[in-house]
Simulated assay, not measured.
Amino acid sequence: MQETPFCLRVGHLLPYSMSDSNTTNFTNPSTFILLGIPGLEAAHVWISIPFCTMYAIAILGNFTILFIVKREPSLHGPMYYFLCMLAFSDLVLSTSTLPKTLSIFWFNSREINFNACLTQMYFIPCFSVIESGILVAMAFDRYVAICDPLRHSTILTNPVVAKIALSVVLRGGMLVLPYPFLASRWPYCRTIIIPHSYCEHMAVVKLACADIHVSSYYGLFVAFMVTGLDVFFIAVSYIQILRAIFSLPTKDAQLKTFGTCGSHLFVILASYIPALFSFVTHRFGHNVAVHFHIIMANVYLLVPPMLYPIIDGVRTKQIWDRLLHLLTYKGT
């Protein structure tokens, strides 16, 4: 016997549906319905296993970095401050989505309050922009450390690092503020079913029965402006870094210096490629399967937070040594 589609099974829960679109007009529904991954409902439990595993690794790894840097005074420097900011941003990003996604997969808890949906819609892009700014700051830190090491401590002082951090946070907070503001003002008279596992910006505003070009164009503007500028500054920093590396006298010195920033390059690629792919396919990839797009939209919020602590923590000798010291001390 063929399973009844979820959108029909929950029809009695939806006071406003597609059939009501000509007669019903309301601005703020009390709840939305998240479908999870449409088309793969039968596999939700299996999909939750890698999702939950990645989330657990991300939580454990990022909290470990925050704990070690806080406990170890020798790690109180610009690179580790930026690393802590990245860890905190990753914790917010993954926690903004995964608990609700897992509740859909495990308990079929698909309802989400309208205000909670707007909160997700704000925090996800806001901390994505903040994270992009942190990657730029980390690239600048590597540039100064490699190209002008004698002035590193005088250029990146604690007040300068604090100003950089504040500007990164303010940029993310202000640029993304129109997302929930505009979404809260659109009338939603078509449906309250969101074919997604979380309240992604365009997935929500597409439900509005109004001209949403302002939201769409502003989202494109923010994405391309932030990504374009940040990638440009990162590229300029690494061009200068590579020039400095290739000017070193020996191959061993070149490889050793490149190793200090190679992990950061991998982190950058792991951040931007899945995020850009998800963003572009959501707006232009009409032939991309819905379930594939939604899986990718979750991957770009899960994989980088899982990888950052592993890459930066393991490759950064001071953090790794401190972690081994703590584990050895507790084991004795």
Rank of each mutant, 00 (worst) to 15 (best):
A210Q: 11
F6S: 06
A42Y: 03
A137P: 00
V161A: 15
R283W: 13
T191P: 15
Y198N: 03
T316H: 15
L13C: 05
P249M: 07
M1C: 05
M121W: 00
Q254W: 00
A203F: 04
V290M: 08
L83I: 01
D230C: 15
P73W: 07
V267W: 00
K256W: 07
S153C: 04
G313A: 04
C261G: 01
S17N: 14
L166V: 05
C189K: 02
A223R: 08
H264L: 12
A87G: 04
I234S: 11
L182W: 13
T332P: 10
S184A: 13
D90S: 15
R185I: 04
A58V: 08
V169D: 01
S197F: 09
S247V: 00
A162W: 01
I68W: 02
M121P: 00
T31S: 11
A203S: 11
N22M: 09
I193K: 00
Y188M: 10
I319K: 02
Q254P: 10
V10I: 08
L242H: 06
S21T: 08
T281F: 01
T64Y: 01
L83A: 01
C7N: 06
D211C: 09
L166M: 15
F221A: 09
L60N: 11
E200H: 06
E131P: 00
I134Y: 12
L150C: 10
L98T: 12
A43V: 13
T250Q: 00
V280A: 02
S132V: 13
N62Y: 12
A223Y: 11
P180G: 07
V267R: 02
E72Q: 09
P99I: 06
M296Y: 13
V303E: 02
D90M: 14
M79T: 12
S132W: 05
L98M: 12
C261Y: 05
A210T: 10
N113I: 00
I234G: 08
T4E: 15
C52I: 03
V214H: 06
L102S: 10
N158P: 13
P50K: 01
Y80T: 11
F284W: 10
L276R: 00
F221E: 08
H12K: 10
F67H: 14
F224R: 05
G228D: 10
Y238E: 10
H12V: 06
